[in-house]
Amino acid sequence: MLHIINKSPLERNTLDACLAVAQEGATLLLIEDAVTAASRGNAAEARLRQVQGRFKVCVLQPDLDARGLGDRLSEGITSVDYGGFVDLVANNKNCQSWL
């Protein structure tokens, strides 16, 4: 299953809400303001590193680039473009947007 998160973890709790519910083997995609979580040095970096064995974590690169964080992608996180976003939706049985 694909979980889509679009909020900064420093502003809202959706990343943590998702991490608490998502099942092992799920894929997480960070888009919009949530991409900040995938940048080196962000307070959420350690939290995402911890779960990398359980989940595949992806980030929407154009959103990262837009926020000036294109060269700060944390290790272990997969960068995708909009085409990659489409593939993630197509290749997972269902998806939940953590609004």
Binding site: N6, E32, G83, F85
Partner: peptide, 19 residues
């Protein structure tokens, strides 16, 4: 909110992939 932009770019990419 960015939602409408994200949705539009998603649709465009999906169509480009033949969906």
């Amino acid at each position: 909110h960015q939602a409408a932009d994200s949705a539009y770019l998603f649709c465009k990419a999906a169509l480009e992939k033949g969906h």
